Simulated scan of single mutants.
Amino acid sequence: MRVEILGCSGGIGGNGMRTTSLLVDGDILIDAGTGVGDLSLERLAAIDHVFITHAHLDHIACLPLMVDSVGEMRERPITMHATAETLEIIRKHIFNWQIWPDFSVIPTPENPFLRFATIEVGRPVVIGERSITPLPATHTVPAVGFHLRNEAAGSSLAFSGDTSICDPLWDAVNAIDGLRYLIIEAAFADRERDLALLSKHLCPSLLLDELQKLQLRPEVLVTHAKPTQQAQIAHEIEAGASVHRPRMLAAGTILEF
């Protein structure tokens, strides 16, 4: 499997600052943040599946625009996969004819540009020789992470999505066979620890505490840093790291497993 990091920042502002989106093998998106906007129409039209961790804008901003831009270029709907709670939020507040048209019924209900599929924590979605399994997460809205597995190679990548302290996440991650990469968030520097706890994100000290629960030894990549705090977050993680040596993820990174 090949994962291209389209965006991994907690904000925007030039210099590669794009919000969360991972492109898997050219036909699957994990989240649809502003990084999706850099893809050509042809690459957008090749995306068949979009898996959404949660309904916050930085993770879904380009989904409505993508569907509108390439729907007529495709022969079948794009499938958006999310939990029932997240689907309800997105349908109610985005595809509602007020913020954006409901592309699940246009151009016709029988042949729409978009369809919705419900996912559940722990239940894999199998697409060819790839499986994508929602992982537990703790955030201010219903949220999940994802376990991506190359069934042919027996190798995996785990992505936390937006999360705070979450023991069930570690129970699930530690049970993954062949875990090559762990992408996990650290949104704020330690000076904003109280805000991180309030908003159910991680900061370096919280992240390093959480990594003590990780029994495996994947490469750990840190995502979702606020643009103005990225350098400080990187410094604090490097200064406090012990068994695991996380490094900051960058847009444009290619991960193969």
Rank of each mutant, 00 (worst) to 15 (best):
I12L: 07
I12P: 00
I12M: 11
I12F: 00
I12Y: 00
G13H: 04
G13M: 06
G13L: 02
G14A: 11
G14V: 13
G14R: 10
G14N: 13
N15V: 06
N15H: 10
G16M: 06
G16N: 10
G16A: 02
G16V: 05
G16F: 09
G16W: 09
M17C: 04
M17G: 00
M17W: 02
M17N: 11
R18H: 14
R18E: 09
R18V: 08
R18S: 04
T19C: 03
T19R: 01
T20E: 11
T20I: 00
T20K: 01
T20R: 09
S21L: 05
S21H: 03
S21V: 06
L22V: 01
L22E: 04
L22C: 00
L22D: 02
L23Y: 03
L23C: 03
L23R: 08
V24F: 04
V24A: 01
V24D: 01
D25S: 03
D25V: 00
D25P: 04
G26V: 07
G26T: 05
G26S: 08
G26Q: 05
D27H: 10
D27A: 05
D27P: 00
D27L: 00
I28H: 04
I28M: 11
I28E: 06
I28G: 06
L29M: 08
L29K: 04
L29N: 05
L29P: 01
I30H: 05
I30F: 12
I30A: 01
I30S: 02
D31L: 03
D31Y: 01
D31N: 14
A32W: 09
A32E: 10
A32Q: 12
A32N: 13
A32I: 14
G33F: 12
G33H: 11
G33M: 12
G33I: 14
T34E: 09
T34N: 05
T34G: 04
T34I: 07
G35N: 07
G35M: 09
G35R: 07
G35A: 05
V36I: 11
V36T: 12
V36E: 10
G37P: 00
G37Q: 12
G37W: 03
D38C: 04
D38T: 14
D38N: 07
L39M: 12
L39D: 08
S40F: 06
S40I: 05
S40V: 08
S40W: 05
L41Y: 12
L41M: 14
L41D: 14
E42N: 07
E42S: 11
E42W: 02
E42Q: 12
R43V: 06
R43W: 07
R43G: 03
R43M: 08
R43S: 12
L44E: 11
L44T: 08
L44D: 08
A45T: 15
A45V: 15
A45S: 15
A46N: 15
A46K: 14
A46D: 14
A46L: 13
I47A: 10
I47F: 11
I47L: 12
I47W: 11
D48E: 15
D48P: 14
D48A: 15
D48Q: 15
H49C: 11
H49Y: 15
H49L: 13
H49G: 05
H49Q: 12
V50A: 15
V50M: 07
V50C: 15
V50L: 09
V50P: 06
V50K: 01
F51M: 15
I52D: 06
I52W: 06
